[in-house]
Amino acid sequence: MLETQLFDAAKRVRLNAYVPYSNFPVACAIQSESGKIYLGVNVDNASYPETACAEANAIGAMISAGERQVKAVLVLGGHPGSGVLCTPCGGCRQRLGEFSQSDTPVYVCSDEGVQEVVTFGELLPRAFGPSNLEQK
């Protein structure tokens, strides 16, 4: 099952998050249109605005591999056992919008697994995206 594959991959990679300042590890697993899974973790920086989010890093991995379409997104945040649910921040919602459709599923997880499933359109209604820049 797709959500289990994404969850297992995110749970493994979250251990690699670099979070000495926020102390809040986040992992993101993205399935592209080809079916391949791309992973990212957050990477803190002493200059806080320079921190890289897990979603941005997963998107970067997907783009580096030559893919351009997100089929599904899973986000797992917080320390193991914390029970915390974490959705993408505003900036990452905009980043995801560049490569997602309004019906793209976004799985929100705790350590126990998927707790919520929302569409990207529910996460960022009326998103500004590439279609807004098309010349008529």
Rank of each mutant, 00 (worst) to 15 (best):
A27M: 14
I30Q: 05
C89T: 06
C109A: 07
V117Y: 11
E33W: 00
G77S: 10
D44C: 08
K136Q: 11
F128G: 02
S34I: 00
N16Y: 04
D111S: 12
L76G: 06
K71Q: 14
G78A: 06
A65E: 07
A58T: 03
Q69T: 01
P80C: 04
I37W: 06
V70W: 01
C109H: 05
C86G: 02
G83V: 14
P49K: 04
E112L: 06
E55H: 00
A61I: 00
A29S: 09
K136E: 13
F120D: 04
D111V: 13
C92I: 13
D111Y: 12
V118P: 01
D111K: 06
L85V: 14
S34Y: 00
G81C: 15
Y18E: 01
T87E: 13
A52V: 15
T4E: 10
N42V: 12
Q94K: 07
E112H: 03
L133M: 06
A58N: 03
V108Y: 12
L15V: 02
A72D: 12
F99R: 01
L124A: 15
N132Y: 10
A9M: 08
P88H: 10
G35K: 02
G40R: 05
N16G: 02
S47E: 08
I37V: 13
L6F: 07
P125E: 12
R93T: 12
K11Y: 15
Q5M: 00
F24C: 02
A17H: 12
V106Y: 05
V73N: 06
V75C: 09
Y21C: 01
V106D: 03
E122F: 11
P25D: 09
E122P: 03
A58Q: 03
L76H: 09
R12N: 01
I37F: 07
